[in-house]
Amino acid sequence: MCSQAEVRMSSCDGQTKTSAARVLTQEELDRLGGERTLVSDFKQMKLENEAQKNWDLFYKRNTTNFFKDRHWTTREFEELKACREFESQKLVILEAGCGVGNCIFPLLEEDLNIFVYACDFSPRAVEFVKQNPLYCPERCCAFQCDLTKDDLMENVPEGSVDVVTLIFVLSAVHPDKMKLVLENINKVLKPGGIILFRDYGLYDHAMLRFKSGSKLGENFYVRQDGTRSYFFSREFLAELFEETGFQSIANDYVLRETVNKKEGLCVPRVFLQSKFTKPGQPQSS
């Protein structure tokens, strides 16, 4: 539990925002401390080389049925509405790592004054976006992109984006390449523009469930299907963004509990929810 001084905000949906990392039980500490052997360098290199293939296979198996539509986005990130100078202003959004469109399509339905650039590592995911009945080229441009090496400016004009959403995306990138992603995004974001971030936080239940032989590095693991996941601390994330030229607006753990009815368990979930800005004044329209 966190002290009252550490808890910044509690919301009515049963989640709490806090600046303090979740405190582990002794059993959880023992479980984490017991895993010291890392996956071999050879297998790590193979996972990196096959990262796109593994995500493409993920979408082949699950099609559009794995993730729920994210209708919570505008509730959690009021900047999607608040950063306009006037109500009818068209907002340009980049959904970096769009998957099959679970975030962008609720946004397009809810707000008629947005244009969305949407990119994903997986060509199959991008095709699912384009096949969606709500996809309209006048309001959305979807394209395949490896954010660690493909220049976003081939599809998005320099300094043209008001808001970037980076939601459960950076965790899938090797920690050594995360800066490359942020440097790429920096080029297309306007001065004064905002990055809205939500991803797996340190000591999330998913992190504690990995079996022996899954650890790739500190807070970095591989799932059975070959996809990888990093679990962020506030400090690591803040340093990552600051070193690539962004300023922190908010950076908090979101703590909540999820009930697994099948197993009769109530499990602790930890996410990191943050907002960063590119320094400079927004250019007048």
Rank of each mutant, 00 (worst) to 15 (best):
C2T: 11
S3L: 14
E6Q: 09
V7P: 05
R8K: 15
C12D: 15
D13Y: 14
G14P: 04
T16P: 05
T16A: 11
S19P: 02
S19H: 09
A20M: 08
A21M: 10
A21W: 01
Q26E: 15
Q26H: 07
D30E: 11
E35G: 00
T37H: 11
T37G: 04
L38P: 03
F42A: 15
Q44I: 05
L47K: 01
E48M: 12
A51M: 12
N54L: 07
N54S: 05
D56H: 06
D56A: 07
K60C: 13
N62I: 03
N62P: 01
N65D: 11
F67E: 13
F67K: 10
K68E: 12
T73Y: 05
T73L: 10
R75E: 07
E78K: 14
E78F: 07
K81W: 00
C83S: 10
C83E: 06
E85Q: 10
E85S: 12
E85W: 06
F86A: 15
S88L: 14
V92Y: 08
G97E: 05
C98L: 04
V100Y: 09
G101I: 03
C103E: 10
C103I: 15
P106I: 11
L108W: 01
L108G: 05
L108A: 03
E109F: 10
E109S: 15
L112N: 15
F115R: 02
V116N: 01
V116H: 00
A118Q: 04
D120M: 02
R124G: 04
F128W: 11
K130R: 12
Q131F: 06
N132Q: 08
P133Q: 09
L134R: 10
P137E: 12
P137T: 02
C140Q: 00
C141L: 13
C141P: 04
C141Q: 15
A142V: 03
C145Y: 07
D146P: 04
T148K: 00
D150G: 08
L152H: 04
M153T: 14
E154T: 10
N155R: 09
N155V: 04
V156F: 04
G159V: 03
S160P: 03
T165H: 01
L166V: 01
I167E: 01
F168R: 10
V169C: 10
V169N: 04
V169E: 00
S171R: 05
K177Y: 13
M178L: 09
M178W: 02
K179W: 07
K179S: 08
L182R: 01
E183Q: 15
E183D: 14
N186Y: 12
V188F: 04
L189G: 02
R198M: 14
L202Y: 13
Y203N: 13
H205R: 09
L208Q: 07
R209D: 07
K211Q: 13
K215F: 08
L216N: 08
G217R: 00
E218G: 02
N219M: 14
Y221R: 10
D225S: 09
G226Y: 02
T227F: 06
T227C: 08
R234L: 14
L240I: 11
F241T: 02
E242C: 14
T244D: 11
G245L: 08
G245W: 11
S248H: 10
N251W: 03
N251G: 04
D252R: 05
Y253V: 08
E257C: 10
V259L: 13
V259K: 03
V267M: 10
K275M: 07
F276V: 00
P279V: 09
Q283L: 15
S284R: 14
S284Q: 15
